[in-house]
Structure formats: structure tokens, C-alpha cells
Amino acid sequence: MNWIRAGIFAVGLLGGLIISPWIPGVCIILLSLRWRAFEALFLALLMDLFWSPVGHLPFFTIGTIAIVWVLEPIRREFLT
């Protein structure tokens, strides 16, 4: 399972640098749906640190924190 998480994280990271911002977005949702994934938070942070100007609101990080915690009751209900 860990290698799937690492793989999704790597795809999100490379996709976010080279292809489209939708790729890390999708990867963050996939990770958050299935796991309590701290990688999703770091992926969002890296996207914000790389692309946003200093002082700009980190939309990716804020959105990911919301997704990770909003999905927690669903994960608790169905995955445990």
C-alpha cells in the first residue's frame, strides 16, 4: 500500500511541475479519499511554494487541509 501512496505522490509532484495543476489536485483527492495521507498536505505545500508568489494565499494548502479533514468522517465510516 505504501508504494501506491508514494507513486501517487510522485505522479502528483511531477504532473504539477510539468503537465497541469489538475494532476496534483486529482492525486490529493485520491490520497485523501483512501488514506489519512500526510503526503497530500506536503504535495499541496510544495505546489504552493513553487508556483505562488511570496505573500500570496496558499490556496492549494488551504484546500487540501479542508479536503483531508472533511473526508475524515467518510474514511472512518467506510475504511475502519
Partner: peptide, 10 residues
């Protein structure tokens, strides 16, 4: 860098 990847238009 790419001109179309950034979600912030950067």
C-alpha cells in the same frame, strides 16, 4: 518553466 501549468498564472 512551463507557462500553462501554474495554478497562480506564474
Amino acid at each position: 518553466s512551463s507557462l500553462r501549468v501554474s495554478p497562480y498564472g506564474t
